[in-house]
Design a protein around this nucleic acid. Structure first.
Length: 437
RNA sequence: GGAGGCGUCGCCUAGUCCGGUCUAUGGCGCCCGCCUGCUAAGCGGGUUUGGGGCUACAACCCCAUCGAGGGUUCAAAUCCCUCCGCCUCCGCCA
């Protein structure tokens, strides 16, 4: 949700932001009209309501007076008169209230369809217009090493780590089993990620993965992203696509003291994604799946801190990917490719040898006050007045893609995989080898 | 699953039976001031949140807000209905 007062004061910024996203700037003007209609109707309702309240009070006073033995005919007449006036007012109050409510609903619907204002720092353009901020490490030259790298499906099978065939039997396409060293690898990654995050001051959280509509709505996933969300119709509950949802909703409808900020959580949860509209993309392997586990960072900060926090989140993500010794690049995502809640987004893309390109493995978004406003999460400004705070999220470790990157980048000619040093204490061994070899 | 109880402006709490004098009581905490070698105590005042009007985003005025949403009524914290949450007991499954 955007700030309506800010919209009234400066609609041009909002129009430009919509244009930069490739979204409809006309919503801004429709919203301005709806907002002024709503305010006019609200004023009318409030005026009538105030009148009704005043008259109702007279009714009580007069009824008491009428019950007195000394009551006069004049008092009785006055009571009848007031009763008549107030009865007709009641109908007017009712109809103006419902008109105001309807207008308010229109405002809410339009406001809800407006995306967050993009950061002026974000590169303007579509998916391909990202800016590369940094490139770290060099892709391995397998030709020079004298062998063809195997892809993660082949390696996973060879090592007894990943089973997509049986997952297809049990659950369908885009599912996988992690088995043996694969399962241990996820647990090792989990422990490495959480220990790094807690070392950085994050509070570990294992949140619910099934949430009510308010939580899903509040985090902005029921807009353009709605088709990718699993909905349990019998219970009107949603399976989360990321721990961001329960971590953001954790403090909904709360006012958090500025002294308690920043609040930083690291959540571990399963993530469910329908992947509607991506038929045919990444059909092989575990790059794009319906269910996976992820370690996610989430920060609540004062509004003026959000850009700095965003940089810090990116820094912690890089620290993790650095520890895994995977070549990667960092991109500043273009305005047209931002989620509805994000003002700015940085992705880390890992080098995937068998694809010969960089693929997204982490993503950190600065949602400024957008989610907080929807979820009613506030802090207090210098004058002690409640104001929406800023929320930010960042992937620390999305299991399948990190596993893909580790297997493919650290493989040896015989198909064994050398684990990065940081992972060894958590995995217990230095190398994953094929069973029986 | 069955039966019962509860949900009030940070926390506790009065009010709900019998609708209007509730502009929601009192205590604690917190904030401001007074008093005071300092601190504490004492005294006075303030202290939900959202929105609208008017404006200097001040003051002021108004509307909504007693778990949420409907309804009855001239008028709802109070009466009726639905839902949500918490607690107790019973049953069932671990």
């Amino acid at each position: 949700m955007i700030d309506l007062k800010a919209l009234r004061a400066d609609p041009e910024t909002f129009r430009n932001s919509q244009l930069a996203r490739g979204e409809d700037p006309g919503i801004v003007d429709a919203l301005l009209v709806a907002d002024s209609t709503h305010r006019a109707q609200l004023a009318e309702f409030e005026r009538l309501r105030a009148e009704q309240k005043a008259l109702s009070k007279d009714v009580g006073r007069l009824q008491r007076a009428v019950r007195e033995p000394a009551a006069t005919d004049a008092t009785r007449a006055e009571l009848d008169e007031v009763m008549a006036a107030t009865a007709s007012l009641a109908a007017a109050v009712k109809s103006s209230e419902s008109a105001a409510k309807e207008a308010g609903g229109e405002v809410a619907a339009l406001a809800g369809s407006l995306s967050n204002v993009v950061s002026p720092e974000s590169p303007v353009g579509g998916e391909e217009d990202f800016r590369v901020l940094d490139t770290v490490g060099a892709p391995r030259d397998f030709a020079a090493e004298g062998f063809q790298p195997r892809d993660h499906v082949e390696l996973g099978e060879l090592l007894g780590a990943i089973d997509v065939e049986r997952a297809a039997k049990v659950s369908g396409s885009r599912f996988f089993y992690l088995t043996g060293p694969g399962a241990l690898l996820e647990l090792a990654l989990l422990n490495l990620a959480v220990s790094m995050a807690t070392g950085n001051g994050f509070t570990p959280v294992i949140p619910p993965a099934l949430v009510k509509p308010e939580a899903m709505e509040g985090t902005g996933f029921l807009g353009q992203a709605a088709e990718n969300v699993y909905h349990l119709a019998d219970d009107d509950m949603y399976l989360v696509g990321t721990a961001e949802v329960p971590l953001a909703a954790l403090h909904s409808q709360e006012i958090i003291s500025p002294a308690d900020l920043p609040l930083r959580y690291v959540g571990f949860s399963p993530c469910f994604r329908r992947e509607a509209g991506s038929h045919g993309r990444d059909t092989r392997g575990i790059i794009r799946v319906h269910q996976f586990d992820k370690v996610e960072m989430f920060s609540y900060v004062t509004p003026d801190e959000s850009a700095d926090e965003h940089t810090r989140l990116l820094g912690w993500e890089r620290e993790f990917v650095d520890a895994l010794e995977i070549p990667y690049r960092v991109i500043d995502v273009a305005t047209g490719d931002l989620g509805a809640s994000a003002a700015r987004k940085f992705d880390i893309e890992a080098w995937i040898p068998t694809q010969g390109r960089y693929r997204e493995i982490t993503s950190t978004s600065d949602c400024t006050g957008f989610q907080a406003r929807r979820l009613g999460i506030r802090t207090r400004d210098a004058e002690g007045r409640p104001v929406p705070l800023a929320t930010l999220n960042g992937t620390l470790c999305a299991m399948p893609r990190v596993i893909v990157a580790i297997l493919e980048n650290h493989q040896r000619p015989d198909g064994s995989v050398v684990l990065p040093a940081a992972l060894r204490p958590f995995f217990g061994r230095e190398v994953i080898v094929a069973p029986g070899s």
